Simulated scan of single mutants.
Amino acid sequence: MKIERFAHYRALTISALLAAVLWCFACSFYSTAINHCTSVSIKWEKGGVSPSELIRQQTYARQDGAGNQPEATLWETYPEQEIMASDKKKIKADIVAAFGDCGDIVSSMLTAGAYPARSDESGCAVSTGLAFSLWGSTNVIGMPVKVEGKQFYVRGIFEEEEPRLFLQAQADSEKLLSNMQLTFTGPGAGERASQYLSSAGFPAGRILDLTLFAWVLDMIFRLPAVILAIGILGRVIGHGKRLCRYPLLLAVYLLIAFGICAVLWFCIELPEFPSEFIPTMWSDFEFWGNLFKEQGKNMVSWIAAGPVFRDMELWISSF
């Protein structure tokens, strides 16, 4: 009996340790990758949208009283650009010219300061790798740096080994930026992104909607808690079988046990499945065929497009 009990507790201990390890992995994976799924990515292989065009569209939308306008951020990566510090030290780094919220296009954690605001034409944010290469330190807030002959001042430092610099594109610039991030509130982000491009008069591009991927991430994040809830439910049923001869005690026991399980399940707060992936009829095979076809086409288009730093971050975090 003692040997069986010891084996039982050992199994429980091992299960608890495995659950803790799974939870740690899930938390790390979730926090790294979820930031890539909160908005819709749009890429143009040729052309794009300029900051001045976006400003005009937003101005017209406000004048027309158009509601539910998404938050839009334009950006472009210029690889291997020369950056020079005040002591004439130079280094090659990737420059990301953004127009909008820089935090929407990167998942790196800020270690100090902030990303330059949309109206900040003289500010920039540098990676820790770039800061160490140029100054040998990450305590560089306010330091001047020259990019293509123009002087910028460091407003923030973000955690990344690759030498990278973020700056804001000018609002009156007619230069086309080939990437856009759209943040919507509510379901149907991919379809709404297509409608937005059409109504705004912007060219059609590759649309990557990661709504389903975000739902999967949420489920992975909650997986250890789900397993724990199912395990507790199994234990409740197992102990409840011993009270089958005592109906009154069994009823009280099950009422308390299932109440505890219901509270636990409520605390897990499972994510709502994206409404655009739910058919009106589950036997609608045409819907399922089109769904898998569109999602497969979406992923193939994304992988086939020229990868940028944001894509690489998502690939690395996913694998």
Rank of each mutant, 00 (worst) to 15 (best):
P116H: 07
W135G: 04
A93S: 07
A97H: 03
Q57L: 11
D104T: 11
R118D: 10
E148I: 05
D104M: 14
L110H: 01
A112F: 05
V126G: 04
V147P: 01
S108A: 15
V147H: 06
Y153R: 08
E80G: 06
A98Q: 00
R155C: 12
G156R: 05
G129C: 08
V145E: 05
W75V: 05
Y153F: 15
Q69M: 14
V154W: 01
T138K: 11
S86T: 05
Q69E: 13
C102G: 07
K90Q: 08
E71D: 12
P144R: 04
D104K: 15
Y60W: 12
S107D: 12
M84N: 07
F132V: 14
R155G: 12
R62G: 09
G100Y: 01
G100H: 00
K88I: 07
G103D: 10
D64R: 12
D101Q: 13
F132W: 14
Y115Q: 03
Y78T: 10
I55P: 00
I95Y: 10
E148C: 03
D101S: 09
A85P: 04
G103V: 01
T73W: 08
K89Y: 04
A98V: 14
V145K: 06
S50R: 03
A72E: 04
V154G: 06
M143G: 08
G123M: 03
A117Q: 11
R155K: 14
C124T: 07
I55H: 03
A93L: 06
L74R: 00
S127V: 10
I105R: 01
I83F: 12
T111K: 14
A125H: 03
R118I: 15
S86A: 15
K146M: 13
T59V: 05
A93I: 00
C124V: 05
Q151C: 06
I91N: 01
S119A: 13
F132P: 06
A72I: 08
K89P: 06
K146G: 07
A85D: 09
T77D: 08
G136N: 07
S127A: 05
S127I: 11
A61W: 03
K150G: 06
Q81T: 12
P116N: 11
F132K: 15
V154A: 02
A112G: 13
K146L: 10
K88N: 14
K89T: 15
E82F: 08
E148N: 13
L110W: 03
G142K: 06
D120R: 04
A112Q: 09
A72G: 03
N139S: 14
S137M: 12
G103R: 08
C124N: 06
E80F: 10
A66N: 11
K150Y: 09
K89C: 01
G65W: 02
I141Y: 04
A66I: 15
A112M: 08
P79W: 00
C102K: 05
T138D: 13
G100Q: 00
D120M: 00
G103Q: 08
D120H: 04
M109T: 15
M143L: 11
A66F: 10
V96R: 14
A61Q: 07
A117M: 09
F158G: 00
E80C: 04
E76D: 07
V140I: 15
T77G: 03
P70A: 00
L130V: 02
T111S: 13
D104N: 13
Y78I: 10
